[in-house]
Design a binder for these strands. Structure first.
Lengths: 147, 147
DNA sequence: CCGGAAATCACCCGAAAGGATGGCGACAGG
DNA sequence: CCTGTCGCCATCCTTTCGGGTGATTTCCGG
């Protein structure tokens, strides 16, 4: 729905723009240059957006130094995750919260909106039974959800 | 897989469409439209490529594992404390922050006002070179200021 | 094909946290 | 005595968080 609107608008704008240019006789003076250049720019932008959007599912792994105690390379407690009903995305957000990132930074890193990060973290806090991020990090560490 | 099929089909359809258009001599009637469409397609592709190219490095999988021999029952790094110029009170506040307490709770526990806690934590963040409490906890743990 | 889980996004609101500045009393060392 | 450090408190302002509600899209399994 939203996408349709977006494309509709973009298309409308494009057409209007072209019309205007046509009226300015630019199109007759530099037909392919102006027209093509604009198209190229606009669609390059759209391409970047689409590329980022559709390839998102590629695994996003955070560069992180894992400090291991001699007990071994730390193992994620998958059981706890399921027991608490924590989804991958939530777990991902948890990791970034523990890394000290703000919601906005997390949103940037995951290519989603800040609102999304907030819902994720809210649900996360719920499932962990905490109400602040520092507590969440503490709890998660205890439960073996993060290194 | 499903997506690949979809794109394949879409591509096929597009080509067929273009062929049909060509056949209808549309190319002669509306050259700019066809030209623009092609440009759009091409630059969308280029955009996708560029978008991926420039953002890819950010999600390269680099799991750096640093083995550290952290044997004993943890010892406070007094040196670091002095080096950073952290006072006892600030260190005390740091501990409570790491315990997941809010400024108000810390104030209650230390019998001081919330404002005082805030100045302490502010200075603490300054000395630790961070700006959020989760970061402070993380940093402090790295430096051996808290268990 | 339907229903539910998961992920996404939006908007609102109130509380918490953080930054900047300034003031005040105590106490130590030059 | 003067200066510096520390601890304490306040006020103002901005940003960040957290909670609540509702909606859409995608995908999976029955």
């Amino acid at each position: 729905m939203k996408r349709a609107l977006f494309y509709g608008l973009a298309g409308g704008l494009l057409i209007a723009l072209l019309k205007w240019i046509e009226y300015q006789h630019f199109i007759r003076a530099y037909p392919s240059e102006v027209y093509g250049g604009l198209l190229a720019l606009i669609f390059t932008g759209i391409g970047i957006y689409l590329g980022l959007r559709w390839t998102r599912p590629k695994e996003v792994v955070v560069v992180k130094e894992v400090r291991v105690r001699e007990a071994g390379p730390w193992v994620l407690s998958t059981g706890k995750l399921q027991e608490l009903g924590i989804t991958q995305r939530e777990h991902e957000v948890l990791g970034l919260i523990a890394a000290g990132l703000s919601n906005r930074e997390i949103a940037g890193k995951l290519f989603v909106s800040e609102n999304t990060v907030k819902t994720h973290s809210s649900r996360l806090f719920d499932k962990l039974g905490v109400s602040r991020r520092v507590q969440a990090v503490q709890k998660a560490r205890e439960e073996g959800l993060i290194p």
